[in-house]
């Protein structure tokens, strides 16, 4: 087992390790030297204000962008290479990114179709179960355009879980939803984490979500300020660091 997946104290095992990562495009650098890790079985939140680079960081974590500096390692497999086979994780994009020309069931079943030799009837059965897991039993034959915002996010989570990854990345899972649906999504993430032992990396700026779901979090500072805090969000709320207080107290610094 590599260093990234080594056993830590108290039975903890590192699943995602990020070292000295620089994120940005071309000459536009958003953050530099980001170093953190996510343990197996935890819900880890990446926080920060709009424009701090949270979603960009997620793109680097899942291998959609190639780091110019630094290193991302998942489950000890070395740098993520999306062309090298089935990635060991699922991703839920901010707007869902469901394929508009396919039904919800086909969206969820796509990866199963591609990566297994299951007959269509078995793929459909698994897709239905995954949809039921997120409370969308009736949406199997619907097109994404027929779903509400909350349903699209749920369907996208179901699609991310299609091949039972041990890690899922969720980009703003509860943003833009009404408070009740947002809390339902939070409950779903917690249930998936507790029920399936799923490790979740959640990008969010919703404080209620953070307190509801996250075991640990990092806060990205503005203007390339790097990681300004790391730890249990409930403890970080009491931090004396003005940059952290500003975020957790929802108040801009005067």
């Amino acid at each position: 087992m590599s260093a990234a997946a080594r056993e830590l104290g108290e039975g903890r095992e590192r699943l995602l390790e990020v070292r000295g990562l620089t994120i940005g495009w071309g000459s536009k650098v958003l953050q530099t030297d980001l170093t953190f890790s996510v343990d197996r079985g935890e819900v880890f939140a990446i926080l920060g204000r709009s424009g701090a680079g949270k979603s960009t960081l997620l793109r680097f974590l899942v291998g959609l962008e190639e780091p110019t500096a630094g290193h991302v390692e998942i489950a000890g497999h070395g740098p993520v290479d999306l062309t090298a086979g089935l990635p060991p994780f699922g991703v839920m994009f901010q707007a869902g990114a469901l394929f508009g020309s396919m039904t919800v069931g086909e969206n969820v079943g796509l990866a199963l179709d591609e990566w297994t030799d299951l007959p269509p009837v078995a793929t459909a059965a698994i897709a239905r179960t995954k949809l039921a897991l997120v409370g969308l039993e009736g949406a199997f034959d619907k097109l994404p355009s027929e779903l509400s915002g909350g349903m699209i996010k749920r369907a996208a989570i179901a699609r991310a879980l299609a091949l039972d990854p041990e890690l899922v990345f969720l980009d703003e899972p509860s943003a833009g939803l009404d408070p009740i649906t947002a809390r339902e999504i939070d409950g779903l993430i917690r249930a998936l984490n507790e029920g399936l032992g799923l490790t979740c990396v959640v990008v969010t700026h919703e404080l209620e979500s953070v307190f509801a779901v996250a075991d640990r979090c990092i806060v990205l500072g503005d203007h390339g300020g790097g990681i300004v805090a790391e730890g249990d969000p409930r403890e970080l709320r009491e931090s004396t660091d003005p940059r952290v207080r500003e975020f957790f107290n929802r108040r801009p610094r005067s």
Binding site: R59, V62, G63, L64, L82, A84, G85, L86, P87, F89, G90, V91, F93, Q94, A95, A97, L98, F99, G100, L110, A111, E114, W115, R159
Partner: peptide, 10 residues
């Protein structure tokens, strides 16, 4: 992001 969704499915 549908193209990216395909890529992250490998």
């Amino acid at each position: 992001d549908e193209i990216d969704a395909l890529r992250v499915m490998g």
